[in-house]
Amino acid sequence: MNVTMYWRRLRRSESAAFWLFLAPWLAGFLGLTLGPMLFSLFAAFTRWNGVGSPQWIGLQNFRVMFTSDLDFWPSLGHTFLYAGARVALGTVLALALAAMVNTRIAGRTFFRTVFFLPAIVTGVPLFVVWSWMLDPSGGVLNYLLGKVGIQGPEWLASSTWAIPALVLMSLTATGGAMIVFLAGLQDIPLELRDAALVDGAGWWQRFRRITVPLLSPVILFNVIMGLIGSLQVFAEPYVMTGGGPEHTTYFLGLYLYNEAFWYSNVGYASALAWVQFLVVVVLTVVVLRFSRRHVHYLGS
């Protein structure tokens, strides 16, 4: 086989095309993702303040983290609590909103826009406005609650209400999930729906027996994306509570930021970051395993 033929074979070879197309991503992954990942894995076994040279200490960071660090387990617990509440309530709300918007109600485009907006226009200014609205004495929320006769709680200032306050705020960011649900709803084969209508099934029955099972892949997608995002949340507690009160909103993302940038404990922070990564991976796998039995794919 001469060179020209080999070259022509190569050009037509799918494998070669695959690697060529993948080249940019591969370069980025190796250089800017995998490389730094490995370095931070190394750093997790050192004591390092970020400026001098790292000092190898083996498993000590992890030993301290799991046994003597009084912040770690509470932080993990609070992060789970926040993530669980946010994903559960957020998914339910997104589904409910999508179902309501999916009807022939007048002004559905307006509602869809309004619900989607905060998910897009997110960021620090929005968090600042929310923490202002949640102010126990001067905030709009408690003011409105007062008008209805309820004594509003201290929200971000109370150890019991801080996490609910953050979850409440995050509920307004479920627009993205809602749109995905909307798309899923519109894909439900009409024959099934019409058949149920003819059978005289009420809307709740239809919803439970047909819509939800058919939407289960979409639900799974939203749950997983929601979990990944909420387990890594950082900006909200950083801007709004600083981790308080009494570290009830000291989620993992904020915790490792403080360790790295505020306490100059970069080695320990790297260890925390890797633990966070593993937690996310494990939880995702668990959810996927669980979903095998409960998620129905169309056509199966």
Binding site: F29, T33, M37, S40, Q232, G253, L256, Y257, A269, F277
Partner: peptide, 12 residues
């Protein structure tokens, strides 16, 4: 990589 926390790669 979807699940990667951003801080892991930040300092390196």
């Amino acid at each position: 990589t979807l699940m990667l926390p951003p801080f892991i790669t930040l300092i390196p």
